[in-house]
Design a protein around this nucleic acid. Structure first.
Lengths: 238, 238
DNA sequence: AGACGCAAGTTTGTATACAATCTGCGGCGA
DNA sequence: TCGCCGCAGATTGTATACAAACTTGCGTCT
């Protein structure tokens, strides 16, 4: 918890709580803050030069996003989704995203497609680069495409919900991901966008479904299926 | 804003913010608080004998649920979804609920079915009763069945999301509903539960889709498509 | 008479003070 | 030596005080 301030989208002053919230949110989905990290109100307040009052509202907002967990009298920490929660995240994505992809395929304008293609190009570029910050950019970009598709579909509620799902996915992958990244294959992304350009809603939905299956296939949920502890202590893989 | 305190599920002391939040949430979906009502922090604080601090967190929570809108320096008020938002709510429900119904049909145990049937019985009873409070109970119950089905499907994330959608639907119906209630036909509810007992996921999903269509068909989105005012003043229906 | 502007009152935004709770360490006793 | 009790530090929960912003109504000027 050191180089966070930088990432803050220095939004208009006045909504400082939102600024802090976004900065922390970014740090979490980027995995600069790993699951389990304690988030002490005073520390964050000092970091952003804000009183505990505004830090608190920021943390509460993150708790609603599901990326932070608040326990009474225990404070806030970066969420550690259980395997069960992780499964539910992907179940929800399988249920929602194909429909979103189909809707996007039907509604996409030329400008929308251009935006998505630009995103693919950017993905290709960062994946060529090496280094930890490039890798972070890659992780983030892979989730961003899903959000951009949702935006094209044009339903703000579903977009917000998917944003939550993608954020949680980032935590899940951090905890249970086998390979550190790879996962969100760029080829699959390209295929989905291609289907959209062809206005092929059915195919876009199918490709999206498989894509999500592939992401989840890279996970290994054995890591304390109940509340862990027993498995962790006596198995010792981790 | 008078007889709210009563409805408060006097939950365990300690989480007073949640108690206030639930009480207000109930009051809103019950339409005891109509869209547009201003929610002043001091008033609510006096009502619940709590400081503005806890009232604030409660209101922020409701804002995340989407049933309350907070404008900077303007305070909180019960949300007034625009026709566009209303359409998005039902679009989201059409996308999510059939899949939820299918999942519920596959997973439902005998106990689950019994619970849903009990709910149907209760619905039948309250719909026989007259009076405003019975009508309120009916409105609430009709939404509750959808949530119970989601609970059977066993995905907490989707259940939470649907809870938000149902709450917003209540506001939408309050604003754009043609008939005051009727809408959520009990017959359709029964048919859905029947399909679940038969483990007929496909039919359950189809019935749910049609059911949602029927609910939305009872709406009339012409009612100030932009920001109203002009229409309201010069049309005078209301 | 109408419009503009100022000032009082109301309401929210933020900071800070105090109380309650939890955590960890050290001493005491078996 | 091990375990339990209790105190001290740290951290959160709640209340309150003060500052900033908005709203409203009145008075004055044109």
């Amino acid at each position: 918890m050191d180089d966070i301030q930088d990432g803050a989208t220095r939004t208009r002053a006045g909504d400082r709580a939102s600024a802090i919230r976004e900065a922390l949110h970014d740090a979490i989905v980027d995995r600069r803050l790993v699951p389990g990290t304690k988030l002490v109100e005073d520390e964050i307040g000092a970091l952003f030069k804000a009183s505990r009052t505004v830090v608190r509202t920021a943390l509460q907002g993150l708790a609603f996003d599901g990326v932070v967990t608040i326990e009474r009298n225990r404070g806030a920490s970066v969420s550690k989704p259980s395997p069960e929660e992780a499964r539910q995240v992907f179940h929800a994505r399988r249920l929602v995203e194909p429909g979103l992809a189909a809707a996007a395929a039907e509604r996409a304008t030329a400008a929308d497609i251009a935006l998505l293609e630009a995103h693919l190009a950017e993905e290709a570029q960062t994946s060529a680069t090496r280094g930890p910050s490039a890798r972070r950019a890659e992780i983030r970009a892979s989730g961003d495409l899903h959000l951009k598709i949702a935006a094209v579909a044009g339903n703000d509620l579903l977009t917000r919900f998917l944003k939550e799902l993608v954020s949680r996915s980032s935590l899940v992958i951090a905890l249970y991901g086998r390979t550190t990244v790879s996962s969100c294959g760029r080829d699959e992304h390209r295929a989905i966008v291609d289907a959209m350009r062809r206005r092929d809603a059915r195919t876009a939905a199918d490709l999206m479904r498989h894509h999500i299956d592939h992401i989840e296939a890279d996970l290994d949920y054995r890591a304390g299926d109940d509340v862990s502890l027993r498995d962790i202590v006596f198995d010792g893989d981790l």
